[in-house]
Structures are given as structure tokens and as C-alpha cells.
Amino acid sequence: MSDVILKTEGLTKYYGGLHALDNANFELRSGEHVAIMGDNGAGKSTFVRQITGVEQRTRGKIIFNGQEVHFKGPLEAREAGIETVFQNLALADDLDVPSNLFLGREKIWLNLGPFSILDFKGMKAATEAALKRTAVKIPNLANTIRNMSGGQRQCVAIARTATFASKLIIMDEPTAALGVQETAQVENIIRTLKSNGEPVILISHNMRQVFDLVDRIVVFRRGRIVANLKKSQTTGEEVVAYITGAKTAPEFSDAA
């Protein structure tokens, strides 16, 4: 199908004898928000690391935007249009918001090689536009990240991905370390992305959040995909049953 953004076929990753990810077949359509759930060590993060090129897969196919891809590193994945919000944020604490948003891809006013002069006005304007698009409110863009709350930091990280991701955003537990109100702020950004039609893969442990935000839930257990559920046709109890292993979907019965 043409509107499939990302598809994996038999994606497998072994760490020595450990089968961290086994034969994962996954599909994401344009505009779709999919949650990946599962216990610790179920293979969620391993799965993401293969897609984003952080690690090299043992075998299997990744088809992104209609083409089979072999990213050598996260940079290549990013250039292809996949942006990831990592658990450890990846922000430079001593820089302000626009500098962080454009870190590594600064707008240049005058090209002088490594001593190129930066286009501060352009970056500030683009930052304001990006924050507006993601409905993030940060009062003072010139403030350094160090002086911001955890929620504001996460918002900057997400705004950064949303600014540059042309095709796919992956979020690895974006609200794990946040308070109630800050979580609400981040969830609001994800809703905004949904209404803009931007596809998202969300890794989360938060059942309420998952049912609030996504269209589909994929459950991992012991390195395998054990369920692929439409949100409208499932319940929290059922998802928990899949996560814990009390239940396995018939089409994945070989994975149990």
C-alpha cells in the first residue's frame, strides 16, 4: 500500500545469544499514531534502535517511505526524515532554545566554513513558528535549558523533532520523568501532531496516556510482537493480559 510510512519484515536483533528482538513485522500508515507497549526488556527500545540506525540489525527488512533502508547511524535516519525524542533528551544545557532546536543544523547567515556566521534572527523566527505549531509556550527563548523545568525541556526536545521530522516521529517514554501538568503539556503536543497528520510511534508504560493518544497498540513480549490491537476494539485489561503473557493473539500464536 502506498500510504504505508514504515514497514518492518522479520526484523531481528541478537546480542550474542540473547534474542532481544525476534522476527518483528510492523506497519505504520501515514497520519497514524501507534503505541508500543510491553514490559521492561520486552524489546521495545531494541526495536526503535534498529529503525533509527543506532544499532545494526541481525536480519530483516526495514521499508521506510516505500524504499528499503539501511541506516548506518542515527544521522542518516534523521536525514531520511525520522526524528527521535530520546529518553535522555539530548539537549545542551547551556544553550538557549533556538540553539538547541537548530543544534547541528544551524541556519547560516554568511558561509565561512567552520567560522560561518549564524542567522540568529532566522533561527529565532523558525523556533517561534515551531513552538506555535506544536502549541508549546516558552516565555523566554533566550533562557538556557539549564534554567528550565523538566516539562519545558521535554517540550523543547519534542518541538525540535517536530520542526525537522518530515515523515516520522518516534518518542521513547516522553513523559516518564514528568509531573501531572507537564505530562498534560506534552500530551497536548502529541495531539497537535495528530491533528497535523504527522505519524508518531509512542513508547509508553502509561495505559491512560496510550488510550488517550493513539489509534493502535502493538504489544511486545520477550522480543516478539504478541498483539496488534485497534484502540477502539480493545480494553486496558486485554492489553495488560498481552503484556504479562496471560494472553496471546491468535495470529501471533507462534510467538508465545
Binding site: 539530548a90 539537549l91 545542551a92 547551556d94 544553550l95 567560522f115 560561518s116 549564524l118
Partner: peptide, 17 residues
Amino acid sequence: YTLYGKHTYAIGSNEAA
């Protein structure tokens, strides 16, 4: 004002990032 400066601060601030 330059890329050199921005990257110097960025590396000192968070090399991994």
C-alpha cells in the same frame, strides 16, 4: 556569533547531545 562558537559551547555543555 559563529558556528565554531556555538559548537564549542554545545560540546562543552553536553558532548553526547
